[in-house]
C-alpha cells in the first residue's frame, strides 16, 4: 500500500503533530507515504475569488501524483474535497480537461484522469480495515472516552465520496475510535461545521460556531475531541482560549488528531506522536493510560 502524501498548506507549519502521528502510524501499518516536493496548495483558498484557478491548481497536483504513478493520501478535509471534486470534474468533462491542460502545458505538465484521492482516515477505515488496526493495538485505552468531529469536507458533497460513510449520520470515525478500545460518545450538533472557512470574514460568527460544539462536547465530560482536519483543530483547539475569554467560560478540552489516538493504542510514545504541540495539554488523559 503506497500513496503520495498530500500535506497542503496548514499541516506542515501549524499541524506538525498531525503529520508526525500520521507518519508514525503509517509506518506501523506498512503504508508507504511518499513525499512529493512539488505538491503545492490544493487550490481551495482561491475558490472564492476564481473557481477556475482552483481547478487548474488541483489539476496540477493530480498531474504530479499521476506522473509518479501514485494515488493521493490527504490529511486535510478541504484538500480532500478540492482534489476529489476536481478529479471527478475533469475525468468526466473533456472540454474542461483540454482547457486546463492548455494552461498546464505552460509549465510542462499534463493532467490525465485516474488518480484516486483518499483521506488518510478513509484509507485506515477502507483499505487497512478495522480488523488489521485491532491486531496492532497493544495499549489499553478502555479508560478513555472521546467525541468525534468529522468535519464537513470529509463527508460532503456526498456525491464525490461514493457514499463510503453516511453524510447525515456518519459512523466511520466513531468506529475508528472504538477500535482502539476507547469509547466514542455521541453529542448534539455532531455534523455542525467548525466555521473555519469564514474565520477571516466574520470572526464573531466563526467563534460562536466553534463554541456551540465545545459546549455540546464538554457537557458529556469526554477526555478529548477527535478531529481529522487541521482547520477544524484551529477552531476548536487554537481558538479555545479566545472563545473562553470572549464568553467568560472554561473548557480545557484537549483536541487530538485521530492518528495521535491510534498511535497511543499502538503503544507509540508521546514524543513520536507530537503531543508537545497540542495546545490544550492532554496530560490528564495521558496519565489515565499511564503514558509519561
Amino acid at each position: 500500500m503506497k500513496y503520495a502524501l498530500f500535506l497542503g498548506c496548514t499541516i506542515p507549519v501549524r499541524g506538525q503533530n498531525y503529520e508526525m502521528s500520521a507518519r508514525a502510524v503509517a509506518k506501523v501499518l506498512d503504508i508507504g507515504l511518499v513525499d512529493l516536493d512539488d505538491f503545492s496548495c490544493c487550490g481551495f483558498p482561491v475558490k472564492a475569488t476564481d473557481r477556475h484557478d482552483t481547478t487548474v491548481m488541483a489539476a496540477r497536483n493530480l498531474a504530479i501524483a499521476a506522473a509518479e504513478g501514485l494515488d493521493i493520501a490527504t490529511l486535510c478535509n478541504a484538500c480532500t474535497g478540492v482534489l476529489t471534486e476536481t478529479e471527478k470534474e475533469l475525468a468526466g468533462n473533456e472540454a474542461l480537461r483540454n482547457e486546463v491542460n492548455a494552461e498546464l502545458k505552460k509549465i510542462g505538465r499534463e493532467y490525465k484522469p485516474g488518480v484516486k484521492v483518499k483521506h488518510f482516515s478513509r484509507i485506515l477505515y477502507e483499505d487497512v480495515g478495522l480488523d488489521k488496526l485491532k491486531d496492532k493495538v497493544t495499549r489499553d485505552l478502555g479508560a478513555l472516552s472521546f467525541s468525534a468531529h468529522y468535519g464537513c469536507h470529509y463527508l460532503r458533497p456526498k456525491e464525490i465520496y461514493e457514499c463510503f460513510d453516511d453524510a447525515e449520520n456518519p459512523h466511520t470515525l466513531d468506529e475508528l475510535i472504538r477500535v482502539t478500545g476507547a469509547k466514542s460518545v455521541d453529542y448534539m450538533g455532531k455534523l455542525d461545521c467548525c466555521g473555519g472557512a469564514i474565520l477571516g470574514v466574520d470572526e464573531g460568527i466563526a467563534l460562536r460556531m466553534a463554541k456551540n460544539k465545545l459546549d455540546s462536547v464538554t457537557a458529556n465530560k469526554v477526555d478529548a475531541l477527535v478531529t481529522i482536519c487541521p482547520f477544524c483543530t484551529i477552531m476548536y483547539e487554537d481558538n479555545q482560549k479566545k472563545i473562553e475569554a470572549k464568553y467568560e467560560c472554561y473548557y480545557g478540552l484537549p483536541t487530538l488528531y485521530y492518528p495521535q489516538l491510534l498511535g497511543l493504542a499502538f503503544g507509540l510514545d508521546r514524543k513520536s506522536l507530537g503531543f508537545r504541540l497540542n495546545k490544550v495539554k492532554p496530560d490528564d488523559l495521558l496519565a489515565k493510560i499511564g503514558v509519561e
Binding site: 512539488d38 491548481m57 507530537g274
Partner: peptide
C-alpha cells in the same frame, strides 16, 4: 521534528496564477 522540508515557493503555481 524529523520531518522533511517543504518547498518555500512553487514557481509553477506563481506562473499559472
Amino acid at each position: 521534528m524529523g520531518l522533511p522540508p517543504v518547498k518555500k515557493i512553487h514557481d509553477e503555481v506563481v506562473k499559472l496564477l
